[in-house]
């Protein structure tokens, strides 16, 4: 498995999402979410790869929000969330809901709880704790007082599953423009440089 940095996870997922056809602003959310998950030891790049490879849930085709869009819509309203549970429909990549609310927790200095049928998660600033198995299911989200039982993110590099990384890289290459003589001219020094 390739060992990659958080910056590479962010950049590759952002470009892959764009290559898939997501708007730039959504692609940025994909990158940052994958990075956040990886920093907490969770398979963020894999979740983005799975979402992008599953045409059946692509919001541009179905007209219904994908896991990323659902998480983004929730996090955009994070400051309106209180003790009253907000219901979140089942998504194929519930990790992406965690990522969005975890990033909202970091940015706002606020804690949130996500609950699902077989477990739950506490998302506090720079802290995450998960109970039980995370499987595709309906969730609820509430704002809570931050506890002290979570683990902090770590910035070191980490492995990503081969096939998923290959798929993300292939998607990311869709935004590249083939070279032309015109594009090479003037971008840098001449090909021979002896002065």
């Amino acid at each position: 498995m390739p060992v990659v940095t958080l910056a590479e996870i962010d950049a590759t997922c952002r470009k892959a999402a764009r290559g898939h056809g997501c708007a730039w602003g959504m692609a940025e959310e994909a990158g940052k979410s994958a990075r956040w998950l990886a920093s907490h030891g969770l398979p963020g790049a894999e979740a983005i790869a799975d979402m992008l490879s599953d045409g059946a849930q692509c919001c541009r085709r179905t007209g219904r929000p994908c896991a990323l869009a659902r998480g983004v819509a929730l996090a955009d309203r994070a400051t309106l969330i209180d003790a009253q549970p907000i219901a979140i429909d089942t998504t194929a990549q519930p990790l992406l809901i965690l990522a969005q609310m975890g990033r909202a927790a970091d940015a706002l200095g606020q804690a949130f709880a996500l609950e699902w049928e077989t477990g739950g998660a506490t998302l506090a600033p720079q802290s995450l704790s998960i109970r039980g198995q995370l499987t595709p299911s309906a969730m609820t989200c509430t704002a809570i007082d931050p506890g002290a039982d979570g683990t902090a993110p770590l910035a070191h590099s980490r492995p990503v599953k081969d096939a998923r990384w290959t798929a993300l890289t292939a998607l990311s290459h869709r935004i590249l423009v083939p070279a032309s003589d015109a594009s090479r001219a003037g971008a840098g020094a001449g090909t021979h440089d002896s002065d």
Partner: peptide, 23 residues
Amino acid sequence: WYVSEEKLEPRLGQRHEEPGGEL
């Protein structure tokens, strides 16, 4: 502005003369 396939480097294209503007 685009990223070149050749070297994964940012470059600047001429929209009305070169292909790739959609990227």
